[in-house]
């Protein structure tokens, strides 16, 4: 392992890892660096920094909405990397690019990953990256830049395929809590808990982080019983929608999750 900040985090911390997702360019075009600094100061462990996409297939209504607002606000890749670079000079928290494969393909995989490293991104989450193609064509490039790539697993993923995705993932394995697009769930069902138990039993090589539908402290704590932590997305984006002051809203939100 190199000096990747995400690897360092998981080497030091195995429990209750808290990650927050934000949409770059939302609610305002320059909100992202403010949010990243606030989240880092509040002790959040890593941040999924979403780059809005016109056709976000894996996202539910809330994140889709934030993406469309951000694109209307004028966010683009140049501004995204500028903002990452700016905030990287102030924080050491691991930052992950969350986006879609076409955003990399358009720029060129090597060129895109090089920009990630230059601006201070530590890894990527690409829901529509095909694992077979990644192994064949792109894995070496990700390794060259020491960038992590976390594959998603879902309740419909077979044990055999989970092993494959664990083998290909670096950083952590993203455990999607439900067979559903983000932000659709209010409480964990028995089926979901069974699924978390199945994952825990598999004793994967990578740390595991649960995402999709983590909306409150109770669910965060349940998630932590089975995995190394959780990612909160939609419910934080919802909180930002009505925020008078995004810093205060962020403080209140994270405190509620961490301390109840």
């Amino acid at each position: 392992m190199g000096k990747n900040r995400l690897d360092k985090l998981f080497n030091q911390q195995k429990e209750e890892v808290l990650s927050i997702y934000i949409t770059t360019g939302y609610p305002k075009i320059d909100s992202m660096p403010i949010l990243v600094e606030a989240l880092a100061n509040l002790g959040v462990d890593f941040i999924e920094v979403g780059m809005p996409y016109s056709d976000p297939l894996a996202d539910g209504d809330t994140i889709q909405y934030s993406s469309s607002i951000a694109l209307k606000n004028g966010i683009n890749l140049d501004k995204y990397f500028e903002q990452v670079q700016y905030v990287r000079s102030k924080v050491t928290i691991p930052l992950l690019f969350m986006g879609y494969f076409n955003q990399l393909l358009r720029v060129g995989i090597d060129a895109f990953l090089s920009k990630c490293v230059q601006s201070g991104i530590d890894g990527l989450i690409l829901p529509d990256m095909p694992p077979e193609l990644y192994e064949k064509k792109y894995k070496a490039t990700f390794e060259k830049y020491d960038l992590s790539l976390s594959f998603l697993i879902t309740p419909t993923t077979s044990d055999e395929r989970i092993r494959l995705l664990d083998k290909l993932s670096t950083g952590f394995v993203y455990v999607v809590s439900t067979s559903s697009t983000t932000g659709n769930v209010t409480a964990f069902s028995d089926e979901q808990v069974q699924y978390f138990k199945r994952i825990k039993k598999l004793k994967l090589n990578n740390p595991t982080i649960i995402g999709f539908g983590i909306s409150n402290r109770e669910k965060f704590l349940i998630a932590n019983k089975f995995t190394n932590g959780a990612i909160i997305g939609s419910s934080f984006i919802k909180a930002l929608k009505h925020a008078q002051n995004i810093k205060t809203t962020t403080e209140e939100f994270v405190t509620k999750i961490k301390k109840g």
Binding site: P130, T154, T156, L165, V176, S179, S180
Partner: peptide, 12 residues
């Protein structure tokens, strides 16, 4: 061509 879909769709 290919199949560039989120894992959520893979089983389907």
């Amino acid at each position: 061509g290919g199949s560039f879909v989120p894992e959520l769709l893979h089983a389907n």
